[in-house]
Simulated scan of single mutants.
Amino acid sequence: MYLDKTSIVIVDDHSIVIEGLKSLLDESHLNVLGHFTSGKEACNFIEKESPDLVLLDINLPDVSGIDLCRTIKAVAPETKVLVLSNHNERNIILQTLQNGANGYMLKNVSKQALLHGIELVMAGEIHFCGEIRDIISRPTKYELGDTPHLTKREKQILQMVADGKTTQEIASQLNVSPLTIETHRRNLHHKFKVKNVAELIMMATKHRLL
């Protein structure tokens, strides 16, 4: 299985949730390095251990999970962050993604859906459960603006970026130089007025281009 040997840290303010997640992950032969109910303690551990993935709740007693996500990305840039929360407010979802989250799922997802989400995030994709995808794909007219005009090649590269492919992988598949792909990616960021891949995918989803 792809997830074998994936190291995970769980951060949630409810011990019973942690116990349930740990049991589920243990059954799936995943390596739970640690689990925490406070953000500060979790962040210190994550900075030291650099786990592959953090399952992060938004509600924590000492810090917002939204802010903690940004901090985790600063101290452990290679660590993926998958938010697992009961919050389905659109502004919270968007703020978390802007702070570097690699995915957002609700706690009512099934075991299979959670494991699938973890697998996709670890494969480099930005993943949302179905309900979250529906929420972020229904922007107001003010937020949406005009749909950017994309060339055929830009649409192709946008889809490959959304699939989690790296610049090198895209260049190899399209038989062009990585510099050419980087130019297309910069153009996509400019056209969508975004700063990173998560925002790009989010905006492309809003415009129903993915």
Rank of each mutant, 00 (worst) to 15 (best):
L3Y: 05
T205N: 01
H87E: 11
D146W: 02
K152E: 15
Q112D: 11
S15Y: 05
C129I: 00
L3I: 09
H190N: 08
E143W: 04
K141C: 02
N44C: 04
I46W: 10
D163K: 13
V176P: 08
R185C: 04
D26P: 01
I170A: 07
N86L: 10
I58N: 06
C43N: 10
M203F: 08
G103T: 06
K191P: 12
S85M: 04
D146K: 14
N99E: 13
L158Y: 14
M160V: 01
D52C: 05
A42D: 11
T37Y: 03
S28G: 01
D4Y: 12
T140M: 05
H35V: 00
L174D: 12
I8D: 04
T166A: 03
L24T: 14
R208S: 06
L60N: 13
L97A: 05
I8V: 15
H149Y: 09
L174W: 07
E169V: 00
N31A: 01
L21A: 04
Q159L: 13
N102H: 14
G130W: 03
K141P: 09
I10Y: 09
V9Y: 04
K191L: 06
K206I: 00
G124H: 06
E143R: 05
G65Q: 08
Q173Y: 12
D52N: 15
C129S: 15
I157H: 08
L68W: 10
K206F: 02
V81I: 13
P51Q: 05
C129V: 01
G39Q: 08
V194W: 11
L106T: 15
H189G: 00
A204S: 15
D163N: 15
H190L: 07
I93M: 07
N91V: 11
L24H: 05
N59I: 12
D13C: 07
V161S: 06
L25H: 06
E131A: 09
A42C: 09
V83G: 10
A76S: 15
D13L: 01
